[in-house]
Write a protein that binds this DNA or RNA. Structure first.
Lengths: 185, 185
DNA sequence: ATAACAATAGACCATTCAGTCTAATTGAAG
DNA sequence: CTTCAATTAGACTGAATGGTCTATTGTTAT
């Protein structure tokens, strides 16, 4: 069986992803984990501190996994990037709820410096990986700007009304992005 | 002096924009308006109903104003669109907090059907206006997809970490989008 | 002037919130 | 077995939540 602390982090990650920080209550978390309150507060001293741990131990790894391009050997960097963009479509939760980092960012960054800082670190790490990847392509374009553009477009595409969200719609929305990237080769 | 009902709607719009639906309490609203609770509940029967009214009477008009292209006479449709994209940079609040429709969408659409419906109506209306605009350009591309791509990219660019948000950064992020649009002429 | 309704005023309510506290239970080390 | 800390357990707290209720004040029509 999963250790209590890990069980809590998993539950908090999922609940905050869907309901947001302010939309997730401690009682929802306790119910989902089926643990007593004393256990939770034994591991974490407050709700905020707990979610900050979730950002580090759950959100950061899941984002980094997505932008880990080290395996791709001799492909053109832009094709590696395009593959990553397409791969997003296969993750049902992403298509349905959007990027968890972006969601939390929009909710919390404007109102809490600690969240903003934690989220910004992950964002910059992602962006750095893309910039490094694109660096190997000798493009005419500014790769810093290009990396940010790609992230913005993917995040935006994932945030379009969940009402009609689907794998196809995401891929449609992202088609011009891919067309543009191809022209840069 | 502004009528009470309008004063409430303005305050709720601003507070929900920054703090989100769940992050905005009735007491925050009452404090900002400096009105007693009885007045507020005289005009609105609940928090939810009140915010739905804000969506209709404040959010929808402010979004529609942005995508009203009727005035531009003989310009190329793509230039009209590019102007609109650039104009976003001049709105400090947009650059700082992101698109209010997108923010509310991400927070509420996954968890409340009524919010999702109200937000989707505004979104579709915006998109329709862009599609009509692009229709006058006889492009080789699918204008439906292109419209969604543009909205996604702008929303995404506005959502990138508020920590370093600025007019310049937004314009940078959006540069590849504009470059791409120019190639379609 | 008075009736009738709209609007203001804020005390009050049940519930939920995040968080505390003490006690019981477990598990590992000696 | 005993000791001692880690963990589980959940009753409890004070503050904040969204919402109700009754009383008062303004305004307008007759």
């Amino acid at each position: 069986m999963q250790p209590t602390r890990e069980k809590i982090l998993d539950a908090v990650f999922e609940l905050v992803y869907v309901y947001g920080y302010n939309g997730t209550s401690m009682s929802m978390i306790l119910k989902k984990c089926e643990i007593p309150k004393g256990s939770l507060y034994h591991y974490f001293k407050s709700k905020k501190e707990m979610v900050l741990v979730v950002i580090e131990e759950r959100l950061a790894p899941s984002m980094n996994a997505f932008y880990d391009f080290t395996n791709d050997g001799n492909k053109h960097p832009l094709d590696v990037l395009i593959d990553a963009i397409n791969k997003v479509a296969t993750k049902k939760q992403l298509v349905l709820y959007g990027c968890p980092l972006n969601r939390l960012n929009q909710e919390m960054s404007p109102i809490d410096k600690d969240f903003e800082a934690a989220i910004t670190i992950i964002y910059k790490h992602m962006r750095a990986k893309i910039i490094i990847l694109l660096g190997g392509a000798n493009l005419q374009t500014n790769t810093n700007i290009l990396a940010e553009f790609v992230i913005a477009t993917v995040w935006g595409a994932l945030s379009l009304s969940p009402a009609q969200s689907s794998e196809e719609r995401y891929l449609d929305t992202v088609t011009p992005l891919i067309n543009y990237l191809i022209t840069l080769k």
